[in-house]
Design a binder for these strands. Sequence first.
DNA 1: AACTCAGGCTAACACAGTTAGCCAAGAAAA
DNA 2: TTTTCTTGGCTAACTGTGTTAGCCTGAGTT
Lengths: 162, 162
Amino acid sequence: MSRRDEIAAEARALLETEGEEALTMRNLAARIGIQAPSLYKHVSGRREIETLLAAAALKEISETLGSQPDLPSMGRSYRAWALANPALYRVATTRPLDRENLPEGIEEKAAAPLLQALDGDPDLARAAWSLAHGLVMLELDGRFPDGADLDAAWSAGLSALG
Amino acid sequence: MSRRDEIAAEARALLETEGEEALTMRNLAARIGIQAPSLYKHVSGRREIETLLAAAALKEISETLGSQPDLPSMGRSYRAWALANPALYRVATTRPLDRENLPEGIEEKAAAPLLQALDGDPDLARAAWSLAHGLVMLELDGRFPDGADLDAAWSAGLSALG
DNA sequence: AACTCAGGCTAACACAGTTAGCCAAGAAAA
DNA sequence: TTTTCTTGGCTAACTGTGTTAGCCTGAGTT
């Protein structure tokens, strides 16, 4: 494993174990056993680390979705992945990602299963993606009232679209 | 106008004219003609300023939505408001908001028009809200491909739900 | 044996939020 | 009228952030 890969792996571990605000250059370096400026010998900056994380996350999400037979189970998988990796989901999804340094075609690949499940209708696919993203973000941000039945909201939304 | 209100107003102006990352305590203070630490005589910190902004934004959004006759025009209004106030929308919507310092019942009030338009079905209302939020966030973050017909995506999604 | 260079290091900078503590002007109380 | 208290400014400073400059060492190449 190259140092660069190690950086990405440790960044992810840091994110998952200690939360988003713990992902700092110094924390990350310490975890590797290095000084923060040395990170710049392998990576152009914090932004690039986040891009690496986003790429990994998109890949995982697309694989998860690709193995599901229908729209409702895609929804369940999407939500489950996001709740299991909340900080990573945020990083991968929340900021504008710089497509320059992102592997070619990874976005299309992530979108493909959804598009297929909706008979190739791009408008419906975008709506479904947005619905899933919105539901996840609002849940992660604690925006729904305490007793809200989110399973029901997912079902209601996805069955209307599908 | 109290200093506190002035702070909120200038914070919003700063956000709208120079973007999210320009909203710093020092910038804000300078705009008012004050030193940064003096802000703390009126406000407990940056977080509280953001809460003030979120409250104002939620109020505006709920008023905007409340004046619309049906779900599709609510969608158009919601999107238009978000695109006209992107940084404010993000601040109001993106982080977990501390309900302690938020005016009582403002969240319910923001949700009410949507709930009414969907015959009081809370699951459908949450789905519709999530759909709108997801569409807006993904658009603001530039996640849709360049030529994507977002009007069509909004229509497809909302007409399926409504 | 000399050289190059990858990959560490320390020191430092600019800027973030925030705290401590001082001080002046005006309001309230004696 | 004089004294006291409170409000709301100020400067200095601390910690933590990303990042840059520049040095140095050790391994591999010529």
